[in-house]
Design a protein around this nucleic acid. Structure first.
Lengths: 214, 214
DNA sequence: ATTATTTTCTAACGCTCGGTAGGTCGTACG
DNA sequence: CGTACGACCTACCGAGCGTTAGAAAATAAT
């Protein structure tokens, strides 16, 4: 060490003044997410993307280094959300049912608010590098494991039906949430929060025991 | 009419002898479904597909007319299933709950048994021609409408919770089923039928009223 | 007004893709 | 034996792709 980041530390004076590059960066990010959602990563050309933000395709390289970087940025946005959600899982109090419903609510609200990003996250994973895929899968597995733990705790507490296969049950509730990006449209009548409230409630209901069972 | 199918009726002699072309056709269909599932349609080259069936890419055109034909064949396989499932919806007897659970079971079993096809059906719809997309969307809408009708009937009969938004509720149960292709692996311990039984039961449970509600 | 810097464009590159044309080889049939 | 056909291959085309280099234009600094 010692010579590291020598170049990037040069003149660390604060970048005042809103640089145009930053707003363009956001434009490009959002347009890319929308196009990847609409046509898929491979079927979206940089020509398409450049046109969507009012540039020529060569000019995009002033902002990005490669096409894959765009997919990485979008995917990582969702990835960081799930890391955080999983970490906060244990911090929250309440019964297993309450904790589970709260986590699913947050998950569902994110899925609706960022349905472009979520769709790309789930549809384009095979396109990512193997190393990054492994990190994502590890995060997903940890998330699912924490949900399974909640289901089993709820079963022991009698909140959830005892005859459920916790693995299958978690796949079920996750499907309810992760399917949102297939039908959600921002111009609809229900807000992301309202959708998240209804779906997370329906999800935990699918785990409850039937009181009239025999 | 009268001149219709004049050309196709010429020499209707039966094609005896198992033509090699037919087994190859099936090989190509299945390999294409698997590759589209694994890498996506746009990211799958005909080179990849040819290699997967032990041919050179030019030879594929002995069996197909274009790459899009492959996606159409795969998509239409799922499409025809949903058409049939919707048509059989009213034919079946029983309470709304029983009918709904039976439909979801069939849907779920198909989704697991043909998860390659199902994944392509949902992920690659934007790739299809506009005219065919419209037919698929119409079929899907009819299917969802018949499910919503069952939910509302069940609500009137007291089988389902009265405070459910039938549209949201149907999206929820469909998500549980349509998510199967994201996690199902044929080498797992549960068969498609077992998965379909558990998930369709969990789905209808998510609609039931809580008896201890207040 | 002149110079620096940031942003965009033009023009081209190497490559891969889907698709085509024509030939080759084996097998079955007359 | 020969010929007809099914199955496959080789070689190629044009187009579009991601990416690069360098000039031009716009904007800011001096």
């Amino acid at each position: 060490m010692g010579h590291v980041s020598e170049t990037s530390r040069e003149w660390p004076r604060p970048k005042i003044r809103p640089r145009k590059a930053e707003v363009r960066n956001d434009q490009i990010f959002e347009a890319a997410a929308r196009l990847f959602y609409e046509k898929g990563y491979a079927a979206t050309s940089l020509q398409d993307l450049a046109g969507a933000v009012g540039l020529k395709k060569g000019s995009l390289y002033y902002y990005i280094d490669s096409k894959k970087d765009l997919l990485f940025a979008i995917t990582d946005y969702a990835h960081r959300f799930f890391v955080e959600l999983t970490e906060n899982a244990k911090a929250e109090g309440g019964t297993p049912l309450q904790t589970l419903e709260r986590m699913l609510f947050q998950h569902a609200r994110f899925a609706a608010e960022h349905f472009h990003v979520t769709a790309a996250f789930y549809n384009e994973r095979p396109t990512l590098s193997d190393a990054y895929q492994e990190r994502i899968v590890a995060t997903r597995d940890a998330y699912e494991a924490s949900l399974r733990r909640l289901v089993r705790s709820g079963q022991e507490a009698g909140e959830f039906a005892a005859d459920l296969d916790s693995r299958l049950a978690v796949f079920g509730v996750l499907g309810m949430i992760n399917w949102i990006h297939q039908w959600y449209r921002p111009e609809g009548t229900l807000s992301p929060s309202e959708i998240a409230t209804a779906l997370s409630r329906q999800a935990v209901r699918s785990l409850m025991p039937r009181t009239d069972a025999g």
